[in-house]
Nucleic acid binder design. Structure first.
Length: 878
RNA sequence: GGGCGCGUAGCUCAGUUGGUUUAGAGCACUUGGUUUACACCCAAGGGGUCGGGGGUUCGAAUCCCUCCGCGCCCACCA
C-alpha cells in the first residue's frame, strides 16, 4: 500500500487520462448501428475565455454524454465556436488601434485578413480550457460558424428564405449602437433605469404671442422636430387646432397635429414629434405624413441639421443646448425624472433609435410550428418547465428579426445591386448566379460582374448559430447525408435562460423550417452563476474566480462536483469555493476507500464471516435502491440530486457502513468471497460516479486491475437495474440504530472502542442472527444475549419496541439515567397524544382511508408499548 | 403597466397527485476522538410555530384568498 499516495493527486492523473482517452479515440463518434445520443455544444464566442458559466454548462453536458456513453449509446458531443461579429470585430479594431491602424483606412478584404489572423492566433482558447475540465467532446468534429461549409449553409438559408418571401428590406427604426456603429436586435438592448431630467421647453405659436410648453428628456432632438402633437380631447389645446409652432433655435415652422396617442396626463400633455429619433414618433410621422429629419451621424454626433452643434456628441449637445435654450428664454423648468435607457449588451453604449435600411426576417409564420412543438406536442421539452411560459409569451408576440449588421466580420449578405436603385437587387448564393438573375431581370445581357455591387452588411451572428444543430452535420447543404440522418434530431441542449430567445427559440424555428423536425428533445436551462452575495459574476466586479486556478486547486473532479452539488436546473448557483473543497474531499474519500481495499491480503482458506455476508447483501440492496433513484433523477434532469444520491451512497453506505463491516482486523487477511464482492461493488460505484468524476474513477478503475484500452471505464457499462430487497434494508436500519445506540453510550460513559462490552436484548421485534453479527462487529460487543427481563446495573436504550442493556463497571448515574428516561417519556407521550387526537376525531376515523387510519393505530400501539418500557425502567430506578 | 416564479434549519435547497412517526438532505455549527483507508477523517449532537393573516378539509409546508418581501421576463409615456 505504501506505493499508493495517501491523498488523491489530481493533476497528473488528469493529464494522463485525458490524453489516454484522446489517444484511443473514445470521444469520437461515427454513425453505426447503435442508437445515437447527441449534444451540440452552445458554441462559445471565439473571443471567450472560460468562466464559471461555461464550467457549469459544460460539466452538465459532459455528465450527460459520459452517462449516455456508459449506457451503450453512440455518444456524440459536437464542440465548436461562434464567430461573434460584434465582439470579435471590436477586439480586432482595438488591436489594430494599438498598432496604430485605423479600421477606416483599411479595405474590407484587408480588415478581414487581420480578423482571421486574430482568430487563428487568439481565438478558441476556451476550447483548450474545456479539455482541462474533462469535457469529452468529439474534437475531430470541431466547427466554427464561419468555416466555409458553415457559411455556405447560412447563405443558402438566406437565399431560400428570401425566395419564400420571408426576408425583406425595410427602412425602419432600429436600435443603433453608435459606438460599434451597427444595428442591434431588440434582444441585444438592455434597458437600465437612469436618473435623467425632464426639460420643459416653450415653443412659440406662429403669428401669436402664445407659447406652448412641451416636456422632453432629450432636448437635443428638438432640431429634428417636425410637428407638435396634442390629444384631440384635451380642452387646453383646442384653440391650437390648425395652427403652427416654431421650433426653438432651428426656427422651423411645424404643424400642430392631433392624435389620441398623446397621454393627457404626462408632462404638459403636449408632445414634440421627432420621427427620425423615436419609434412612436415615427409611427405618428407616417400617419400624419410628416417630414423626417435625421440630425445624427452614425457615431451619434450631430450632422448639418445640428446647426452650430455640428460634429459634437449628443450628450455634449444636450448640456450645451440646455444652456442656450435657457439663456434665450425657451427653457421653462427642469425636473428630475427617472427613465429607462437602452444600452448595448456588448459595448454598453446608449442606443439611439435610428432609421435605416435593414434586412428583416418575417417571424410570425415561422414561429407557429415552434410554438406547437413546445406547447402542444412536447417534441421539445424544457427543464425546468417554468420557461415554457416565458417562451410562449415571446413567441406569440414575436417581432420580425432584424438580421443585418453594419459590420465586416460575418457572412456578407448575398444581395447584389445592379443599379443605383435601392430596390434594384437580386439575391443569390454566388455572384455568378446573381449576374444571371440580374441579366434576366433587366433584360440587359450586357450586364457584367463589375456592374454588381454586393450589400455591405453582414448577417447577425445568431443567423448562423440558429442553424447549429443542423449545420454541424452539414444538413443544410446536403440534407440526405448519413450524418444528419443519423445524429439529428439531437437529444439534449444545455444552455442558460439568457439566450432562450436569441438562440434556443430560433433553433427550434430553424429545425422545423429546414429539417421539418425538432432540433433537440430536451432543453436543460441552467441558472446563472452568482457569488455568495448573490451578485452576478462579472469581470468588472472582479468576483469571478479564475476557472483554471480552481481546477489547479481542487482538481477537475472536485470543481465539477462542487459546481453540480447545488445547481438545480434553472436555479441560480451561488458559487462558493467551499463547494469545490467538498468535491475535493469527496474525491479523497473515495481514493482512500480504494487504498483500504487494495491493502487487504486475501486468504482463500478463510470462510466468509456472517457480518460480511449480511453487509454485502445489504449494500447490494442499497445500491439498487439508489440506482433506481438516480435513474429517476436523471430522467427529470435533476443532476444535482443524482449526484447527491451517489455521494451519500458512496460516503455513508459504502465507506461508513459496508467497509467498516467487512474490514478485517488489523493485519488480518480477508476471505476471498468478500474481497471479490467488495471489488465488484466498488466497480459499480465507479461506474455511476464516472460521469461526475471521470478522472478519479478512471484512475482507480485501472489501479484495481490491469485493463486493456477496450476495458477502460469510460467505455464500460452502466450497472443494470434489477430491483432490491426492501425488507432487508428496513431490518438493517434497526441494526444500524442499535449500533448507533451503543456508540452513544460508549461516548457518554467514555468507554473506549477497543474495550469490549456485552449487550443484552429484551426483544419484542425479531432480528436475525446475521444482523446480530453485524452489531457485534461494529459495536465491539463480546456477545449479544437475549433476556426475558430487565437487566440490573446496566445502561439501557430503546430502538422501536426492543430494549437494549449494557452492563457497566462501577455505579450508574441514577439521576442522569432518570432524567434521560423522563425526556424520552415526555416526547413519546406527546407523540401519543397527537396520534390519539386524530384517532378520537370521529370524522377522521370515518372519512380517512383505511390505510391511513390503520397506520395511526399502529403508531398508537407502538407508542404505548414504548411508554410501558420506559415507565418500567423508571420504576427500576426508584 | 403585463406575465412568470419564489419565500421551509445559520447557508443552499428537497418535500411528486393534501395523510409513513410532533418536516428532510448537504454544508456550516457544538461536543468527543492521534482505532494501523482517509483530520481532505471518524462518532455523537443541537437547530425550523414551513414569510404574516384568513379560508377549504376529518387532516395543509402542500389547495384557495389576501397582505408583506424577493427574483426574473416582456412592454414602455415623450
Amino acid at each position: 500500500m505504501s506505493q499508493i499516495p495517501k491523498n488523491f493527486e489530481a493533476k497528473q492523473v488528469e493529464e494522463k487520462w485525458y490524453s489516454y482517452w484522446m489517444q484511443h479515440d473514445f470521444f469520437h463518434s461515427e454513425p453505426d448501428r447503435r442508437e445515437p445520443y447527441t449534444i451540440v455544444i452552445p458554441p462559445p464566442n471565439v473571443t471567450g475565455v472560460l468562466h464559471m458559466g461555461h464550467m457549469l454548462n459544460n460539466t452538465i453536458q459532459d455528465v450527460l454524454i459520459r452517462r449516455a456513453r456508459l449506457k451503450g449509446f453512440n455518444a456524440c458531443w459536437v464542440p465548436g465556436m461562434d464567430h461573434a461579429s460584434i465582439a470579435t470585430e471590436a477586439k480586432v479594431v482595438a488591436k489594430l488601434k494599438e498598432e496604430g491602424i485605423d479600421k477606416n483606412s483599411l479595405s474590407r478584404e484587408e480588415f478581414l485578413s487581420h480578423a482571421w489572423e486574430w482568430k487563428e492566433k487568439y481565438g478558441g482558447i476556451i476550447l483548450e480550457q474545456l479539455k482541462k475540465l474533462g469535457a469529452s467532446c468529439d474534437w475531430q468534429r470541431t466547427k466554427f460558424t464561419m468555416d466555409p461549409h458553415m457559411s455556405e449553409a447560412v447563405i443558402k438559408v438566406f437565399v431560400d428564405l428570401h425566395k419564400k418571401g420571408l426576408i425583406y428590406r425595410g427602412y425602419r427604426m432600429v436600435n443603433w449602437d453608435p459606438q460599434a456603429k451597427t444595428t442591434l436586435s431588440d434582444e441585444e438592448v438592455i434597458y437600465e433605469e437612469r436618473q435623467g431630467n425632464l426639460y420643459y421647453l416653450a415653443y412659440p405659436i406662429q403669428g401669436s404671442d402664445e407659447k406652448v410648453i412641451i416636456a422632453t428628456t432629450r432636448p437635443e432632438t428638438i432640431l429634428g422636430d417636425t410637428a407638435i402633437c396634442v390629444n384631440p380631447n384635451d380642452e387646453r389645446y383646442k384653440h391650437l387646432k390648425g395652427k403652427k409652432a416654431i421650433v426653438p433655435l432651428a426656427d422651423r415652422v411645424v404643424p400642430i397635429i392631433e392624435d389620441e396617442y398623446v397621454d393627457i396626463e404626462f408632462g404638459t400633455g403636449c408632445l414634440k414629434v421627432t420621427p427620425a429619433h423615436d419609434e412612436n414618433d415615427k409611427v405618428l410621422g407616417d400617419k400624419h405624413d410628416l417630414e423626417v429629419i435625421d440630425i445624427f451621424n452614425e457615431d451619434a454626433t450631430l450632422n448639418a441639421y445640428g446647426l452650430h452643434y455640428k460634429g459634437k456628441d449628443r450628450f455634449v449637445v444636450r448640456k450645451e443646448i440646455t444652456e442656450e435654450l435657457g439663456s434665450k428664454g425657451y427653457l421653462v423648468k427642469v425636473e428630475q425624472h427617472v427613465n429607462k435607457v437602452g444600452t448595448s449588451e456588448r459595448t454598453k453604449a446608449v442606443i439611439e433609435p435610428r432609421l435605416s435600411d435593414q434586412w428583416f426576417l418575417k417571424m410570425e409564420g415561422l414561429a407557429k410550428p415552434a410554438i406547437e412543438a413546445v406547447l402542444e406536442t412536447e417534441e421539445v421539452r424544457f427543464f425546468p418547465k417554468k420557461f415554457v411560459n416565458t417562451y410562449r409569451h415571446w413567441m406569440e408576440n414575436v417581432r420580425d428579426w432584424n438580421i443585418s449588421r453594419q459590420l465586416w466580420w460575418g457572412q456578407q449578405i448575398p444581395a447584389y445591386y445592379y443599379s443605383d436603385g435601392k430596390e434594384d437587387l437580386v439575391v443569390a448564393e454566388t455572384k455568378e448566379d446573381a449576374l444571371r438573375l440580374a441579366q434576366e431581370r433587366t433584360g440587359d445581357s450586357g450586364l457584367t460582374m463589375s456592374d454588381l455591387r454586393q450589400d455591405e452588411d453582414v448577417l447577425d451572428t445568431w443567423f448562423s448559430s440558429w442553424l447549429w444543430p443542423i449545420s454541424v452535420f452539414d444538413g443544410i447543404r446536403d440534407p440526405e447525408n448519413e450524418e444528419i440522418q443519423y445524429y439529428y434530431p439531437t437529444n439534449d441542449l444545455v444552455t442558460g435562460p439568457d439566450i432562450l430567445f436569441f438562440w434556443v427559440a430560433r433553433m427550434i424555428v430553424a429545425g422545423y423550417e429546414f429539417k421539418d423536425e425538432h432540433p433537440f428533445s430536451n432543453v436543460y436551462l441552467t441558472g446563472l452563476v452568482r457569488d455568495k452575495q448573490r451578485r452576478k459574476m462579472s469581470k468588472s466586479l472582479g468576483n469571478s474566480p479564475d476557472a483554471l486556478k480552481l481546477i489547479e486547486d481542487f482538481g477537475a473532479d472536485g470543481v465539477r462536483v462542487g459546481l453540480l452539488l447545488s445547481s438545480a436546473a434553472g436555479n441560480d448557483l451561488l458559487f462558493d469555493e467551499a463547494l469545490c473543497q467538498q468535491g475535493k474531499n469527496f474525491a479523497n474519500k473515495i481514493w482512500n476507500a480504494f487504498r483500504l481495499i487494495k491493502g487487504w491480503q486475501v486468504d482463500e482458506t478463510i470462510k466468509q464471516p456472517e457480518h460480511s455476508k449480511i453487509g454485502l447483501q445489504w449494500f447490494e440492496a442499497k445500491f439498487q435502491k439508489a440506482l433506481s433513484e438516480i435513474e429517476d433523477h436523471f430522467s427529470k434532469y435533476r443532476i444535482s440530486d443524482a449526484l447527491m444520491a451517489i455521494y451519500k451512497l458512496v460516503w455513508d453506505d459504502f465507506c461508513s457502513w459496508l467497509l467498516e463491516i467487512v474490514k478485517p482486523a488489523y493485519q488480518q487477511p480477508i476471505d476471498k468471497v468478500t474481497y471479490d464482492k467488495v471489488i465488484s461493488l466498488l466497480e459499480d460505484n465507479l461506474r455511476i460516479l464516472h460521469p461526475f468524476m471521470p478522472f478519479l474513477t478512471e484512475e482507480i478503475w485501472q489501479h484495481i486491475s490491469e485493463k486493456t484500452p477496450e476495458e477502460a471505464l469510460i467505455v464500460d457499462q452502466w450497472p443494470s437495474q434489477h430491483g432490491h430487497d426492501g425488507q432487508l434494508i428496513k431490518d438493517f436500519e434497526l441494526a444500524m440504530e442499535v449500533v448507533s445506540g451503543i456508540r452513544t453510550i460508549r461516548k457518554e460513559k467514555n468507554i473506549a472502542f477497543k474495550d469490549q462490552i456485552a449487550l443484552f436484548v429484551l426483544n419484542a421485534e425479531k432480528t436475525t442472527t446475521l444482523l446480530d453479527a453485524m452489531v457485534k462487529k461494529l459495536g465491539n460487543i463480546s456477545e449479544v444475549a437475549y433476556v426475558e427481563g430487565k437487566v440490573e446495573g446496566a445502561l439501557s436504550f430503546r430502538v422501536r419496541s426492543n430494549e437494549y442493556f449494557i452492563p457497566i463497571m462501577g455505579s450508574i448515574d441514577v439521576e442522569g439515567e432518570v432524567s434521560k428516561l423522563r425526556e424520552e417519556l415526555g416526547y413519546t407521550e406527546g407523540f401519543l397524544a397527537s396520534v390519539r387526537k386524530k384517532l378520537s376525531n370521529e370524522r377522521f376515523v370515518s372519512n380517512a382511508p383505511e390505510k391511513v387510519v390503520a397506520l395511526e393505530r399502529k403508531k398508537e400501539a407502538d407508542a404505548l408499548a414504548k411508554i410501558a418500557t420506559i415507565k418500567a425502567s423508571l420504576e427500576n430506578f426508584q
